[in-house]
Simulated assay, not measured.
Amino acid sequence: MFDWIPVDIYTDLQYYALFLIALLILFHSFSSDLHDSENIRFFNIFGVVFMVIFTLYIGQRQVNYRFGDTVNYNKAYQMLLGGGEVVIVKDYLFNYMMVFCSKFMSVRGFFQVVDILYIIPVFLFSRKYFGSYWFFAFFMFVSSFSFWSYGVNGLRNGLGTSIFILGLYFYDRKWLMYACFVAAYYMHASIIIPIAAFVVSGLYRNPKVYLYIWLASIPLSLAGGSAWSGFFANLGFESDRTEGYLTGGSEEYNDQFSQTGFRWDFLVYSASAVFAGYYFIFKKKITDPFYIHLFGIYCIANAFWVLVITAAFSNRFAYLSWFLMPAVIAYPMFRYKIWDNQYRIFAVILFLYFMFTFLMNVIL
């Protein structure tokens, strides 16, 4: 569908499109009232059109090395199309889904199905918790630093996190929520980290403790260095390609993650959501049980990443908390009256949030 777009500009093109939309929201916030019914109607219609085009654009990409593991998934899929046998020993849901799809659709069709499943939970979550203003939350999700990457490269990780978000969509229907968590785990086993964070923060709902856990992880990481990577690898996180993520076991992983060592830039990025949660809960006295639980999941899961931050390719672990950043930052701003000119302040925050994405993925 989009094969006419040169593959070498395919990814950057969507970032420039997102940049224009972020600018549109920013300019609109300084000139219009978001609560006006016509404005709400416009962004709802625009949001649906944007979601459809974005879903097709990411799903109908070409099979090319510029999209990372798209090439490797294609190789496995072509083997299935050719009648090859596979032995499935992990990530059962994703792998059996691939086997099932290979019986009646092409690899491009499979990638489209994966990305529909990747994006729909984000849409549902945004619709439920942000109501008429769902587009702004949805845009914040899809314009996040790693969202595109996990839709074209780390497919299993990305799909696992989206199904986890679907579980949060069913937060008030516990059996469906836990079913989604189980499905997310069998999509990619790394989802055990946010699941564990969900359980811990659910059993002990004290946001001060979540904050202390996150803050403590920084000096512990600085003091322990690579020892934490080895420790978690020995606990069993070495399965599949995870050992390479933690210990830098091959050049492949080091090439994919251009800089190792203590990533202060990514720590500051992560801290923005921690600060947002701190500000809303402790300064603005937000006592929403769901939001406090969400803040706990983020802090605990992100603390795990901080401990292994020096590992090669540790951004794979960072995404196990980063995927919740838009919800942690934006949720209170569309559920509670916090400031005068709240829409304008949100638009500025959204623009700055996206500019980190643009800076890291396009400019640098």
Rank of each mutant, 00 (worst) to 15 (best):
F354M: 00
A347C: 01
Y353S: 11
T310Y: 01
S126N: 03
S190Q: 10
F282Y: 09
Q14I: 10
L215A: 15
V86P: 01
A196Y: 04
N95I: 05
D36T: 04
Y185D: 02
N153Y: 02
H35C: 02
A76D: 05
S217R: 14
N44E: 04
Q112H: 03
M51A: 15
L168C: 03
G59A: 09
V209I: 12
H293K: 14
C180T: 03
V142P: 01
S32T: 03
F237K: 00
F198Y: 15
V7S: 15
S258C: 00
G296S: 02
L220I: 11
G261K: 05
I329K: 06
G83V: 09
F54S: 05
V52F: 13
G167T: 01
Y171K: 03
M333N: 04
G83F: 05
K284S: 11
F164Y: 15
M360T: 10
S229L: 09
R335L: 11
Y298M: 07
Y77H: 14
D240F: 10
Q60M: 08
L176Q: 03
D3C: 13
Y129D: 13
G84N: 05
G244E: 03
L211V: 04
R156N: 09
Q62H: 13
G151A: 14
A216N: 11
N44S: 13
M105E: 00
F136E: 09
G59N: 01
F231A: 09
P6F: 12
K284F: 09
I163P: 01
F139S: 13
A17H: 10
F30R: 07
N234Y: 05
F94R: 02
F111Y: 12
S321C: 11
P332G: 12
G154N: 12
F266D: 02
K174R: 09
W322Y: 15
L211P: 00
A76T: 13
A303D: 01
Y353P: 10
F295M: 14
P121K: 06
L159E: 03
I309G: 00
N341V: 02
R335F: 05
G158N: 04
W4A: 12
L93S: 14
V362H: 00
Y65I: 13
E251T: 00
T55A: 15
H35Y: 13
L352M: 09
D115T: 10
V209G: 08
A312I: 05
L117Y: 05
F46Y: 10
G202N: 10
A137M: 15
A347Y: 03
F232E: 06
Y57D: 06
V89C: 10
F262V: 04
M51D: 00
F317Y: 14
Y10H: 07
N361H: 11
D172F: 00
A196K: 00
Y298G: 12
D172C: 00
Y336S: 06
